[in-house]
């Protein structure tokens, strides 16, 4: 760990120097809140998959990072993983978030484990395996984390393609219906039938409302 705290630009420069072509893009986001508008910085670094482990070693050399979590997004042709770190914690107002992003193409969803560098990462890596269907190569503990044992293979909740959650798995708990074990409705006379249709129309009107407008009206 070097003694002096670097500025966000210097941190980015260190990555560019150490990793060279492995860095695809960088961005520094600044946010100021409260009355004094104290700045806080989030550094986003886009990486090649091969540069992930060297990048984490670089980060460890700067300041042993705190890994918050690994998040992931299905962006169509690829799955993006974001490794959210923070460095310089313990310095008043001087902490930076550093997010390392790697994109994994859908036909080769493999990423090396980082649990050998940061043992706590295994928890989040297990979650990414079950939620996004990525393969973490060399993971010391590859069991499922949150999903139950009987959860179907090849279904990954956060994916937006064919391997996402099928509609059949969703049980709508709000749904109410006529109990199935009751006898069939008696044959209805014409005017009564009209009533039923009117009632059904009414029902469609109520349930057909978009949730967003309903929510909006409630807040108005």
């Amino acid at each position: 760990m070097s003694g002096r705290r670097m500025t966000p630009d210097e941190v980015v420069a260190v990555f560019a120097r150490e990793l060279g072509g492995g860095v695809r893009g960088t961005r520094i986001a600044e946010r100021r809140e409260g009355a004094k508008k104290h700045p806080s910085y989030t550094i986003w670094i886009d990486l090649d998959r091969e540069a992930l482990k060297p990048a984490i070693r670089t980060l460890i050399d700067i300041h042993f990072p705190h890994l918050s979590v690994i998040s992931g997004t299905d962006i169509g042709t690829a799955v993006e993983l974001n490794y959210h770190f923070s460095i310089y914690y313990g310095t008043k107002g001087g902490e930076y978030m550093v997010t390392l992003t790697v994109a994994l193409p859908k036909d080769d969803l493999r990423v090396p484990t980082i649990a050998d560098l940061i043992p706590g990462a295994v928890f989040s890596e297990r979650e990414k395996q079950e939620m996004l269907g990525v393969e973490v190569v060399g993971i010391p503990d590859g069991r499922r984390l949150f999903l139950p044992e009987e959860f179907p293979e090849g279904v990954y909740p956060w994916r937006k393609d064919g391997t996402g959650i099928p509609d059949a798995m969703v049980k709508d708990l709000w749904a109410v219906g006529r109990p199935a074990n009751r006898p069939a409705r008696p044959v209805v006379a014409r005017e009564v039938q009209g009533e039923v249709q009117a009632a059904e129309k009414e029902e469609a009107k109520v349930t057909g409302r978009a949730p967003s407008t309903e929510e909006a009206e409630r807040h108005e």
Binding site: E33, H38, H66, L67, S68, Y89, G93, P119
Partner: peptide, 30 residues
């Protein structure tokens, strides 16, 4: 540190880490 603990659990082990202080947001920066 290695297991990425946070909050009072980390502070009780001597890790100086508190988002309110380190990474000011809302009114905490003031």
């Amino acid at each position: 540190l290695r297991l990425c603990t946070v909050g009072p659990t980390a502070r009780a082990s001597g890790v100086n880490m508190d988002v309110r202080v380190d990474f000011p947001y809302a009114a905490y920066g003031d």
